[in-house]
């Protein structure tokens, strides 16, 4: 899983060639509680690193999901519309949010790898 990178806002991005798949982490879904709705960007939309790309809603909270890197949205996870609970049950798998065509791979270097993210989360307690 060395091709997965993490942000301090608890998003993950998995790189496959020039496409990055983006979702929220196990820690984030736990903090949110039961996810009831996910607002996804439109395919074709340009997202920028740190900019708002999606919104994830639990019963009592709505949180922005920020794009970890610049890119153009090429696909969104339509399954979340009917089954938002996927974000809770499988946040790093079937609960992915959207995919972007990576614009600048060097932006990934600034993100955390799994070990760094793990110790970052531990530091939050």
């Amino acid at each position: 899983m060395s091709n997965v990178k993490y942000t301090q806002d608890h998003e993950w991005v998995r790189i496959d060639g020039d496409v990055g798949t983006i979702g929220i982490t196990e820690y984030a879904q736990e903090q949110l509680g039961d996810v009831v709705f996910v607002e996804l960007p439109e395919v074709g939309k340009a997202v920028t690193k740190g900019g708002e790309a999606a919104v994830v809603e639990s019963v009592k909270a709505a949180s922005e999901v920020f794009a970890p890197i610049d890119g153009e949205v090429v696909e969104v996870n339509d399954a979340l519309a009917g089954e938002p609970g996927l974000v809770n049950s499988d946040p790093t798998g079937q609960g992915w949010f959207f995919k972007v065509r990576v614009k600048d791979a060097s932006q990934l270097d600034a993100l955390m790898d799994e070990a760094a993210y793990k110790s970052f989360v531990e530091g939050l307690h």
């Binding site: 039961d34 009831v36 709705f37 809603e57 639990s58 019963v59 938002p84 609970g85």
Partner: peptide, 8 residues
């Protein structure tokens, strides 16, 4: 009451 079910 199941508020999650109501919102989903």
């Amino acid at each position: 009451l199941d508020e999650t079910g109501a919102a989903r």
